[in-house]
C-alpha cells in the first residue's frame, strides 16, 4: 500500500476513475486521497463512495500532499499553478494527466524545482485496466518514478516513453481502441445475419478477442505465426484473411493510425 498523500486537483471523470481504482484495489488508504473539486456534489459523492478526504481549497490539500495529481482541463490547469506553488509541501511532485501540457510548460508554471511527471492515461476507469504513457521530467528521482508507477499500476500498466512520443501514443491508442470496437461490430452483425442471436454473436466475439490475446501471449510468437498455425486448408479463417488482403485492410490500418497521430500532434 502506498504510504503517501495524494491531492487530486479536480475530481472529474478521469480523477474519479483513478480514485475508484486506487480505493477498490486498496492501493492507498482512502483518507490519504485528498480531493478538491469545484462541483460540490461531485466531491461529496467521491467522499461518500470511496472515503476520500474532501478539502476546502487547493491550498489546504497541497500543503499536506506528497503528490499533486493535476486532473483539470488543459486550459485551466495552469491557472491554479500559483496557488499550488505558494502552498505545496516541500518535496512534493506534480503528476499531470492533462492532455497536451508539456513538461516544459508545466515546469514554467509550477516552478522549476517541482518534479513533473506527465502521463497520458489510456485506460478505462470502469474496468481498471489500460496502458498509461508516462514520461518524467529531468528532476524526477527514483522515488518519484516508483510512486508514479504505483499510482498508474492501480488502474492499469505503465509504458515509459519519451515526451516526443506522447502525441503518437495518444493517437495510436485512440485509433487502436476504436478499431477493436469497430471490428467487433461487423463480427456481431455478420454472425447475426448468418443465424446467431446478437447476444451469442457478442459473447463469441468477445471471448475470441480476449482468448486470441492469451494465445499470442502464451506462445510468445509473432501473431502471423500464431495465425498460420490455426489455419485449415480451405477453411473459414483463411477465406476471411484472404478477403481482408484483397480489400486493402493492412494499408487501411496503417493510414488510419497515421491520421490519428497527425491529429494528436496538431492538437498539442
Amino acid at each position: 500500500m502506498l504510504n503517501k498523500k495524494i491531492m487530486f486537483v479536480g475530481g472529474g471523470l478521469m480523477a474519479g476513475g483513478i480514485i475508484r481504482a486506487m480505493a477498490l484495489k486498496q492501493a492507498i488508504n482512502p483518507s490519504d486521497m485528498l480531493v478538491y473539486e469545484i462541483v460540490p456534489e461531485r466531491m461529496k459523492k467521491l467522499e461518500e463512495d470511496y472515503g476520500v478526504t474532501a478539502v476546502g481549497s487547493i491550498a489546504e490539500g497541497v500543503a499536506q500532499a506528497d503528490v499533486v495529481l493535476l486532473a483539470l482541463k488543459p486550459q485551466i490547469a495552469l491557472s491554479v499553478a500559483e496557488e499550488v506553488k505558494a502552498h505545496r509541501k516541500p518535496g512534493s511532485f506534480l503528476f499531470s494527466i492533462c492532455a497536451g501540457l508539456t513538461i516544459e510548460t508545466l515546469s514554467e508554471a509550477y516552478g522549476g524545482d517541482m518534479p513533473i511527471v506527465r502521463t497520458m492515461p489510456h485506460g478505462f476507469s470502469q474496468v481498471m485496466q489500460g496502458v498509461t504513457g508516462v514520461c518524467f521530467g529531468a528532476t524526477c528521482d527514483d522515488e518519484v518514478r516508483q510512486v508514479s508507477r504505483s499510482i498508474i499500476e492501480s488502474f492499469g500498466s505503465a509504458l515509459e516513453i519519451s515526451e516526443g512520443q506522447m502525441d503518437i501514443f495518444t493517437g495510436f491508442c485512440a485509433v487502436g481502441a476504436l478499431w477493436v470496437m469497430h471490428m467487433v461490430l461487423p463480427l456481431r452483425y455478420g454472425a447475426c445475419e448468418a443465424g446467431l442471436t446478437l447476444e451469442e454473436a457478442m459473447d463469441l466475439a468477445l471471448e475470441n478477442l480476449a482468448g486470441t490475446v492469451d494465445l499470442v501471449k502464451a506462445s510468445g510468437e509473432h501473431p502471423r505465426v500464431v495465425c498460420d498455425r490455426i489455419l485449415e486448408p480451405g477453411g473459414p479463417a483463411v477465406r476471411a484473411l484472404n478477403s481482408l488482403e484483397k480489400n486493402g485492410y493492412y494499408a487501411a490500418v496503417v493510414r488510419n493510425v497515421k491520421a490519428g497521430c497527425d491529429r494528436a500532434t496538431a492538437l498539442s
Partner: peptide, 15 residues
Amino acid sequence: LSKAEPALYLSLLTA
C-alpha cells in the same frame, strides 16, 4: 466464426 474470428483479431494485431 469460431475459426475465423481469432484470425481476424490476429490480423488487427499484425497491422
